[in-house]
Nucleic acid binder design. Structure first.
Length: 492
RNA sequence: CGGGGCGUAGCGCAGCCCGGUAGCGCGCCACGUUCGGGACGUGGAGGUCGUAGGUUCGAAUCCUGUCGCCCCGACCA
């Protein structure tokens, strides 16, 4: 049992918060709603970044960087986008402080230093980027533009939670410009596939690919695609979005190009992003009451070696063997930690590395040295087995693969257990309250029905799955005809 | 923005109702014994009690203001 970690059953929300803090992932900062991402947490984010960045580059994208500040006049150019974010924008109005004549040693905003035009701290970068693209694009020869940026954004949320919703967060945002609608739609879908691929294969997180309903669409987008994941408490989490922007931003910023036929037209756009919220998804999808469970592909440390010793002589002997194993594993690209601290006992170390979610732990003691064995413990199932010292190195890659597969399978099984087809509003409400999870139900396609269900049950349409099969049915709320089921859930 | 809670040692908290100059657990430091699932003993260091003012001989405690954070809700690309 992790020291003082509450259980998921007792209080899921508290469990999550305490886990984030106790596993050294992040903590609250002195600024409301903002967090400090600690080195261990940041190293997981870096692994995510590396994997995603490679996938972006493999699909032809390049990184660039645009400013944090957006002049208000640019920000308001795309009306729907501006409206959608207006309520949560931080604004810079002044550019200088001065010493307070009334109060020595204190600073006040210098009223003389008021900006002529306020600057919006970006909640998203479409505005500043499309105003730039206007300068970059004249001809079809300038297209497509395939750019991504890794950045921070600020959204002044009323209520925040570590990683899941913070006032400032880290993300990547891809912004592409194309000469045809068809090409832009393909890009949108391609990036959705990249996200799904990343979630499933790196995070071991099964996701549903789908489109958002009109009510949940990104402001300024024509169509929003998303991947939706299921957490252990039966609530859904939007893990990534990819938007087909149509010509909305091109029109707002007057981005036109001449095509092969010499005709002038507006450029087609996409944008897509995932954020540090993925950290929250990773934690909530796999971890248990003993702490984090990390998929090997994103674990900062794959294998920890804990020596069990009484004397320096014993430690020296074990160290030699441990370093040998560590070196052999590192050569294969694995991150290995040899925890030779003599300030903590083995039991403490076991608990600590479990809390931090290290996938595989090796314990080597005098008995092992004598017998030529090593105890191998896997974090996901807590199973232990004894292996021969001379074959442990060759067995570990397969073990790590198995852990990756096992936690994915476990999450997938859980998701299917909490996904229910419901056929009436009564059944909908009952299942939602007793079991939670995804509810596959018929919907008449109107925003009114969606809003009414949300109002009455707090469940929203997470997405219209791309693979939803055509099936005649009746809307659970209005009884009107429907051609496919959509996924409802309570969500983060 | 509504409701609730909390600011006292690095962390978690008690003390506050009933004012008398601050305590517990963990952690930290030293030494010794321990070490195969979160060790134990002994000794030690560490706090202008969020902040400003008021009442009082005396304030962590009572009063007023103020700042901040967290949780629940509403909201949420």
């Amino acid at each position: 049992m992790a020291k003082e970690l509450p259980t998921r059953k007792e209080d899921y929300s508290l469990w999550y918060n305490e886990l984030v803090k106790k596993a050294d992932l992040a903590e609250h900062s002195d600024v409301r709603g903002c967090m400090v991402i600690k080195p261990y947490g940041y190293s997981i984010w870096e692994k995510m970044q590396q994997a995603l960045d490679k996938m972006f580059k493999d699909t032809g994208h390049s990184n660039a960087y645009f400013p944090l500040f957006v002049p208000k006049s640019l920000f308001e150019a795309e009306e729907k986008n501006a409206e959608g974010f207006a309520k949560e924008c931080a604004i810079v109005t002044h550019y200088r402080l001065k010493t307070d004549p009334q109060n020595k040693g204190k600073l006040i905003v210098d009223p003389e230093a008021k900006l002529d035009e306020e600057l919006v701290v970006r909640p998203t970068s479409e505005a500043i980027i499309w105003s730039t693209y206007k300068k970059w694009i004249q001809s079809y020869r300038d297209l497509p533009i395939l750019v991504n940026q890794w950045a921070n954004v600020v959204r002044w949320e009323m209520r925040t939670r570590l990683f899941l919703r913070t006032a400032e967060f880290l993300w990547q945002e891809g912004h592409t410009a194309h000469s045809t609608a068809d090409e832009a739609v393909k890009e949108t879908v391609q990036m959705l596939d990249v996200y799904a691929d990343f979630a499933e294969n790196f995070m071991a997180l099964p996701v549903v690919k789908g489109r958002k309903s009109e009510g949940e669409r990104f402001p300024g987008a024509v169509d929003t695609y998303c991947i939706e994941a299921m957490m252990q408490d039966g609530k859904a989490l939007q893990a990534g979005t990819s938007h087909f922007l149509g010509q909305n931003f091109a029109k707002a910023f007057d981005v036109q190009f001449t095509n092969k036929e010499g005709k002038l037209g507006y450029v087609w756009g996409t944008s897509w992003g995932v954020s540090t919220r993925l950290m929250g998804a990773l934690i909530m999808a796999h971890s248990d009451d003993d702490g984090l469970v990390l998929p090997p592909k994103l674990a900062p440390i794959h294998v920890v070696i804990v020596p069990i010793f009484r004397t320096d002589e014993e430690l020296a002997k074990i160290s030699e063997k441990a370093q040998e194993i560590a070196a052999a594993l590192r050569k294969q690209g694995f991150a290995v930690k040899f925890d030779n601290r003599d300030t903590h006992k083995p039991g403490f170390k076991f608990a600590e590395w479990e809390l931090k979610g290290v996938p595989v732990r090796l314990a080597i003691g005098p008995r092992d040295m004598e017998a030529g064995t090593v105890e191998v413990a896997r974090r996901d199932t807590k199973e232990k087995q004894v292996m021969r010292l001379d074959e442990v190195v060759e067995k570990i890659p397969a073990l790590l693969d198995d852990i990756q597969t096992t936690i994915y399978a476990r999450a997938r099984t859980f998701r299917s257990e909490v996904t229910t087809e419901v056929n009436s509003y009564e059944e909908f409400k009952q299942v939602l309250n007793e079991k939670g999870g995804f509810l596959a139900a018929h919907w008449d396609g109107t925003p009114e029905t969606e809003a009414a269900i949300k109002e009455e049950t707090k469940a929203t349409i997470r997405c219209i799955p791309l693979d939803a099969k055509e099936e005649a049915g009746a809307c659970i709320y209005s009884g009107k005809p429907s051609t496919r089921r959509v996924l409802f859930a309570r969500a983060y």
